[in-house]
Simulated scan of single mutants.
Amino acid sequence: MSARSAIVLLLGIATTIAGCDKPASGNGQAAAGDANAAASTATAPAATADEAPAAAGTAPKAGTVDRSHKGEAAPAVAFTNAAGKPLTVKAFGGKPTLVNLWATWCAPCVKEMPTLDAAAKAANGRVRFVAISQDMDPKKARSFFAERRLSTIQPMYDPQLGFSLALNANLPTTILYDKRGRELWRVTGERDWSSAESRALLSEA
């Protein structure tokens, strides 16, 4: 790795770590995540309580739905599956795909993962669930999935942080893409993906 690449990677790690919410408080919500989570677009469905825009100058609540990127194509950044095969979101064309960017060192990521697995089971294959680990050591992510017996979500690996850097995303960030690989919405920060509100969101795919 060149010196320039190393600097870019370290800056990306610092940005992602800085954005990862701290462990959740007693009310189940983590601290506010990425300030890029903005108000819904005019073409989006009527905003619910978890889609309300934040007050001017304040960061949105963690878990808030952001529709400001609706219609954008998924990054053409490659990540790898368990066999080491490079893949992109475009390769999953033909079926809606939920991408979750996470890492084992991110407490809110770890906390919400079982609810993502439950949501994936409830979707019964209608939506593909992909968890792209931003751990620099893929073995940690593999061990995490094995220890917690998370068998429904497809684990992927991105040790170069290419996906989160392409989106300038904090962790966790979850994005729903339609079957053409176009974004429908994204959520930054921890969320209960097994809740009725989240099931309604997933039904948009």
Rank of each mutant, 00 (worst) to 15 (best):
G94V: 06
K111P: 04
Q29C: 09
P96L: 07
A131T: 03
L176K: 01
N36D: 11
K85E: 15
T15E: 12
D137V: 08
L98D: 00
D178Y: 06
A14I: 15
D21V: 11
A91W: 02
M136E: 12
A24S: 11
G33D: 02
S194Y: 09
F129T: 13
M1Q: 11
A35P: 11
K70F: 10
M156Q: 07
K22A: 09
L167E: 05
L101A: 03
A118V: 10
V110H: 04
K111W: 06
A24R: 09
S203I: 00
A42F: 08
L150I: 04
Q154C: 05
S194F: 07
P23W: 10
A30V: 12
W105D: 06
A6Q: 10
R186M: 00
A83K: 04
A54R: 00
D137C: 13
P45A: 07
E197I: 08
G28L: 05
R149Q: 14
V8Y: 09
T15F: 15
A32S: 08
A91F: 03
V99F: 02
R186D: 00
M1L: 12
L201A: 13
R180H: 12
E51T: 05
T41A: 07
N81I: 08
T88P: 14
F144H: 06
G71H: 07
N124K: 10
A46G: 13
D34P: 00
S5G: 07
A146T: 04
W102Y: 05
Q134V: 03
T58N: 01
G57W: 04
T41S: 10
R180N: 14
V127A: 08
R180Y: 10
A44L: 08
P155M: 01
S2V: 09
S133R: 02
G26Q: 15
R191T: 05
W193C: 02
G84D: 00
D137G: 11
S2P: 11
T173R: 09
Q134H: 08
D137I: 07
T173W: 06
E72N: 14
T80P: 13
A38Q: 13
T188E: 13
A32T: 03
I17W: 15
